[in-house]
């Protein structure tokens, strides 16, 4: 474990807690894409299939359980909670996430480290995570005003993978010089997708104005 990875995990955890807090405290999920949240559940389920089989550390296991639990409960709130589900606007959250799931799955079958169930699912989860934010970013572009919590949520979500990129650089030079193209390139693409959001987020923060993404 290194400081970059810990910072990344804490940023990721904070983003999820922020979202869960918004949903529970405001009883609203306005501006949040259910499609993206469902993709994250798929990402965590397919990545943590080895949760019951392999034990790395208490930290690793507890964080996997927390990520699984929180992401599933966010989808539950948005789909089934009698008050919250009224605030979900499915007419604007129209991104067909099957167009992300299928290509990522096919790609994981073609490009992976080993053609085993665990390895293909793990690879699929990395590819899917890289593009999972797209429905949310499309939704933000359609939203006239983005509330601060949602903006902060997306910012932290993008920042976490940027910390992971630093963690991978650290691990490569300091630890074991092993090349791992799949996580590296997926993580790079994931962070790149946030680039224009980061630009507008920081601009709105500096100018103290409302966050607005160009349509």
């Amino acid at each position: 474990m290194n400081a970059f990875r810990l910072a990344g995990d804490m940023t990721h955890l904070l983003s999820i807690i922020l979202l869960l807090h918004k949903i529970r405290a405001m009883k609203s999920c306005a501006g949040i894409s259910l499609r993206t949240q469902e993709l994250y559940v798929i990402v965590f389920v397919t990545r943590y299939v080895d949760l019951s089989m392999k034990y790395y550390s208490f930290y690793n296991s507890i964080m996997k359980i927390v990520f699984l639990g929180t992401s599933i409960s966010i989808v539950w709130y948005m789909r089934y909670h009698k008050v919250v589900k009224q605030t979900y606007n499915k007419d604007v959250d129209t991104f067909r996430h099957i167009f992300l799931i299928l290509p990522c799955f096919v790609l994981a079958l073609l490009i992976n480290r080993a053609f085993t169930v665990i390895e293909v699912l793990w690879t699929f989860s990395l590819y899917l995570e890289a593009v999972a934010i797209l429905p949310q970013l499309v939704l933000l572009q359609r939203s006239r005003n983005i509330d601060n919590l949602t903006g902060n949520y997306v910012f932290l979500l993008g920042a976490y993978r940027a910390f992971y990129l630093l963690n991978w650089i650290y691990r490569f030079f300091i630890e074991n010089h092993q090349v791992r193209w799949i996580p590296w390139l997926s993580g790079l693409l994931q962070t790149a997708i946030y680039a224009d959001f980061f630009y507008y987020y920081i601009k709105s923060w500096k100018n103290r104005e409302k966050l607005k993404l160009p349509a």
């Binding site: 995990d9 392999k54 550390s57 690793n60 480290r113 793990w122 992971y164 092993q178």
Partner: peptide, 10 residues
């Protein structure tokens, strides 16, 4: 082995 040693990440 590469893939297993890197599965310690979240």
């Amino acid at each position: 082995e590469e893939s297993s040693s890197f599965k310690d990440e979240l």
